[in-house]
Design a protein around this nucleic acid. Structure first.
Length: 191
DNA sequence: GCCTGGATTGTCT
DNA sequence: GACAATCCAGGCA
């Protein structure tokens, strides 16, 4: 599990809308698998679409904790989604990791996502969690110090960034807080 | 290819 | 008791 400079506490201790675009191009790595972050969304406590909007509960407690920790929640009765806590402790901010491109351990991901094409391995928040074997037991892990899980800057700058409204929510659509790395031109020819 | 609806359970009102 | 920061299969074009 190596991929360059590890993102430190100070990186995460800023506003989610500042951290989110800078996470594009970073490498999410566990002991077995790694992938480059290509899609994220920001959520803040004054944002009606955020879990933290209505205050702290048992479910979202991690989101109000110190920055740099992993906030994993369960949704739609069957899916896990992974976020990174940002801002100051108590803020209730996070960045949702929506998609990565596989870099290492692709065979492991294929096993965990049996029957899926390679491009379907990690191109959604719940898919990413399955490929990385993240679930509720990983909620609260510290991405800055955990020896088996972290975010790294390997010097690869994210390609052109695009922003759009966020996905799967009914409020807060005026905030264009979804960031995408430019798609691979070889797979998405300009038309 | 695009669109639609079902799955399934923790959490909050 | 309703709903949710989603995914997938299946139908149709």
């Amino acid at each position: 599990m190596n991929g360059g400079r590890r993102l430190d506490r100070a990186f995460f201790a800023r506003d989610a809308t500042a951290v989110a675009p800078e996470l594009l191009g970073a490498v999410l790595a566990t002991g077995e698998v790694a992938g480059r972050v290509v899609e994220v969304e920001a959520y803040t406590a004054d944002d009606p679409a955020s879990h933290s909007f209505r205050g702290r509960t048992a479910r979202n407690a991690t989101m109000f904790g110190p920055p740099g920790h992993l906030y994993v929640y369960f949704t739609y009765g069957m899916h896990w989604c992974a976020n990174v806590v940002t801002g100051a402790e108590g803020d209730g901010q996070a960045v949702l990791l929506r998609a990565v491109t596989p870099l290492r351990g692709v065979d492991v991901m294929r096993r965990r996502r049996a029957g899926r094409a390679d491009r379907e391995l990690t191109n959604g928040p719940a898919k990413l969690c399955r490929a990385f074997a993240l679930d509720g037991s990983d909620d609260g892990r510290d991405l800055v110090t955990d020896p088996g899980l972290g975010l790294f800057d390997d010097g690869n700058v994210a390609a052109t960034v695009r922003t759009t409204p966020r996905i799967g929510i009914r409020v807060g659509l005026d905030r264009h807080w979804r960031w995408l790395a430019a798609p691979d031109p070889s797979r998405h020819p300009v038309g």
